[in-house]
Amino acid sequence: MKWDTLEEEPCSLARTVAVIGDRWSLLILRECFLRIRRFDDFQTSLGITRHLLADRLKKFVRFGVLRKIPYQEAPKRYEYILTQKGLDLYPIIMSIVHWGNVHMVDSRGRPLLHEHKNCHKMFDPVMICSECGEPLTAKAVHVHPGPGARRSSPTSNGVSAKNAG
């Protein structure tokens, strides 16, 4: 796999990594979910260079993760709003946050707590089966080739190493 052609791979993970697979992209998404919308606010919050920030924001707009909306005419300035495609990345971001809360916190504890607006309780994200509602773990899942998989030599689980994902 070549880094600049990941979006063309027959692998959902590779295609997703093409969009969000670097630290700045993930941190920009974190800021979006924390309601940051303006270029200068992203830059101040993250300490990212203007060039890198502009590059990542353009990529998110190109992939339909963010929508660019003008909020000022002279000079022209934009807000970056999560689209539905961007909002659908929330479970990924929350899974990464949860892993960090479990494995990377220091003695002070979690830096942010998440409250469910409906029940007003602090929560941890949980991944469940969409069919039966049972919690999912890596050991409880079998992977099978789908209609978009490449035909090549299968591994022990039925999916080739090249197109697992």
Rank of each mutant, 00 (worst) to 15 (best):
161 A>H: 15
40 D>P: 01
162 K>W: 02
54 A>P: 00
58 K>R: 11
139 K>A: 05
90 Y>T: 00
89 L>R: 04
9 E>C: 08
66 L>W: 07
69 I>E: 15
36 I>M: 05
164 A>P: 05
18 A>W: 06
117 K>M: 06
100 G>P: 01
113 L>H: 14
96 I>Y: 00
117 K>A: 14
160 S>H: 00
137 T>L: 12
20 I>H: 01
62 R>E: 14
96 I>P: 02
90 Y>F: 11
108 R>C: 08
47 G>I: 09
158 G>V: 12
35 R>M: 06
82 L>N: 08
139 K>N: 14
135 P>N: 14
157 N>Q: 13
134 E>V: 13
83 T>A: 05
51 H>T: 14
38 R>K: 15
36 I>R: 05
91 P>M: 04
28 I>L: 03
27 L>M: 13
25 S>F: 01
53 L>I: 06
110 R>K: 14
32 C>H: 06
33 F>K: 07
66 L>I: 00
55 D>I: 03
162 K>H: 13
9 E>A: 12
99 W>G: 05
37 R>T: 13
5 T>N: 14
96 I>V: 13
148 G>W: 00
111 P>I: 13
108 R>Y: 08
51 H>E: 15
67 R>I: 06
61 V>D: 00
165 G>L: 09
77 R>L: 09
55 D>L: 11
73 E>N: 12
72 Q>Y: 03
147 P>R: 15
154 P>H: 03
107 S>C: 12
125 P>W: 02
155 T>Y: 02
117 K>N: 14
128 I>D: 08
127 M>I: 13
1 M>V: 11
80 Y>G: 11
52 L>G: 05
140 A>S: 15
38 R>F: 00
92 I>N: 00
96 I>H: 03
45 S>F: 04
37 R>N: 03
10 P>R: 13
89 L>V: 02
67 R>W: 11
43 Q>R: 11
101 N>S: 10
51 H>C: 04
75 P>V: 01
41 D>R: 02
94 M>G: 06
64 G>E: 09
154 P>E: 05
148 G>H: 14
162 K>E: 10
2 K>V: 07
138 A>I: 04
131 E>K: 15
96 I>A: 10
1 M>S: 08
71 Y>C: 10
56 R>I: 10
2 K>C: 01
71 Y>D: 03
120 H>C: 12
125 P>Q: 07
88 D>S: 15
82 L>Q: 03
125 P>F: 07
117 K>H: 09
37 R>V: 10
41 D>N: 10
39 F>W: 12
39 F>N: 12
31 E>S: 09
162 K>R: 11
145 P>K: 07
45 S>A: 09
132 C>T: 01
123 F>T: 12
141 V>E: 06
6 L>Y: 04
10 P>Q: 14
109 G>E: 04
57 L>V: 13
140 A>T: 10
38 R>E: 10
66 L>V: 09
11 C>H: 05
152 S>H: 01
91 P>I: 06
61 V>W: 08
64 G>F: 03
144 H>L: 12
123 F>S: 04
33 F>I: 01
79 E>Y: 02
52 L>P: 00
110 R>P: 03
21 G>Y: 00
153 S>L: 08
104 M>N: 12
22 D>S: 10
109 G>Y: 07
151 R>P: 01
